[in-house]
């Protein structure tokens, strides 16, 4: 089980959300948007700069790097 942060996932990669690192006021909004632990996400775009685009429950969501850094995932 290798865990990493969402920020480092390449485009096309699928991963399961494991948890969140502390800090930032965004966590509750992430939950509401379906990004709860256990949810499976797919990276749509990640250029190493600027927001990362993921697909979760069929919806595309843009996530800023600061937030993405705190999302711990387990690549599938």
């Amino acid at each position: 089980m290798i865990q990493s942060s969402l920020e480092s996932l390449p485009p096309g990669k699928r991963a399961k959300i494991v948890g969140y690192m502390k800090g930032g006021g965004w966590t509750y909004r992430l939950y509401q948007m379906g990004l709860t632990p256990g949810a499976v996400i797919e990276v749509v775009a990640n250029y190493g700069k600027g927001p990362i685009i993921v697909r979760v429950m069929g919806v595309e969501i843009a996530i800023g790097r600061g937030i993405a850094r705190r999302i711990i995932v387990e690549p599938l």
Partner: peptide, 12 residues
């Protein structure tokens, strides 16, 4: 200050 970050749904 909180570093400005984005979290936004992108409808089709």
């Amino acid at each position: 200050v909180v570093e400005p970050d984005i979290l936004l749904e992108l409808p089709p």
